[in-house]
């Protein structure tokens, strides 16, 4: 009884405000024909008819998501591999750190014009934009994580002659994983932004392109629906990340809770 009640309460809390907001939106747009703020029902219609239409899905949405997925996977791989190498080599770290800090400070989006110039406008360029903008948080956090490995753990591994690939797999990477995951979180949100931006420049297809196209054609409900879709993708990516993070770092969260108690 009480568990049913408790779960009902939490559903109420979770759904209450969103429902109220949508209702308020619906009420505010009822009867009026405001061009910029269409009624939620019209946005929903547009969402189904344009964005979920097979043509849009295969031409715009899926290729965009594919580039995003490949881009961030490449960024994470490059970031972790290079970061591990740099983090474990003090002189290399000292050599590269100022330059890396500088690259990280460059707003990722200004790489779009640079790469457009260097690579021309095509999918390679768009992928390069995603990778070159989102690699930095993973790279720098991995360096920091590897460098910050507890010296007692390092001594333990050395004294038991755990080294080479085994040490990377079971000691170095797990020790750095809390930092790496924090970098991955940033990498995902930067990657998503860059996916959209790279398509807003001189493209002929893609999620970002379509949204801008709808805006220029004054197809406002369709544009809103596109924003909604991007929002949903953002939320989905965050949710998947959270799931993975909970799994990968379960030991970390567990030990933190014990330490805090």
């Amino acid at each position: 009884m009480s568990t049913v009640r408790r779960s009902l309460t939490s559903v109420g809390y979770a759904a209450g405000l969103p429902v109220l907001l949508v209702l308020a939106w619906a009420l505010a747009t009822r009867g009026t024909a405001n061009l910029y703020y269409p009624a939620p029902s019209r946005v929903l219609d547009a969402f189904v008819s344009t964005w979920l239409a097979p043509a849009t899905l295969t031409r715009d949405v899926l290729p965009s998501l594919g580039r995003f997925g490949i881009g961030v996977l490449l960024a994470i791989t490059i970031g972790v591999v290079a970061g591990t190498a740099i983090g474990a080599t003090p002189w290399l770290r000292a050599l590269l750190e100022p330059m890396l800090e500088f690259f990280r400070a460059i707003p990722p989006v200004v790489l779009v014009p640079v790469l457009m110039l260097l690579l021309g406008i095509d999918d390679t360029m768009r992928l390069a934009v995603i990778v070159s903008g989102s690699v930095w948080p993973v790279l720098l956090n991995t360096i920091e994580g590897v460098r910050g490995t507890d010296p007692v753990l390092t001594d333990t591994s050395r004294s038991y002659r755990v080294r080479g690939a085994l040490a990377y797999r079971y000691v170095v990477l797990p020790a750095a994983s809390p930092q790496i995951m924090a970098g991955v979180r940033l990498c995902l949100s930067i990657g998503l932004i860059l996916m959209v931006i790279s398509e807003m420049f001189a493209a002929s297809a893609g999620l970002g392109y379509q949204i801008v196209y709808f805006q220029r054609q004054y197809m406002i409900p369709e544009m809103w629906a596109g924003i909604l879709l991007l929002g949903l993708i953002g939320v989905a990516v965050a949710a998947v990340f959270q799931l993975v993070e909970r799994r990968v770092l379960h030991w970390y969260h567990g030990s933190r809770e014990v330490a805090r108690a």
Binding site: L153, D155, T156, S159, Y160, R161, Y170, P174, Y252, S255
Partner: peptide, 21 residues
């Protein structure tokens, strides 16, 4: 280098065990 025939037990047990294992 760390010899094969020696095993070490550190004072900082909390830090010498791998928390992810």
């Amino acid at each position: 280098e760390p010899p094969k025939k020696m095993a070490l037990v550190f004072q900082e047990y909390g830090r010498s065990l791998y928390p992810w294992l």
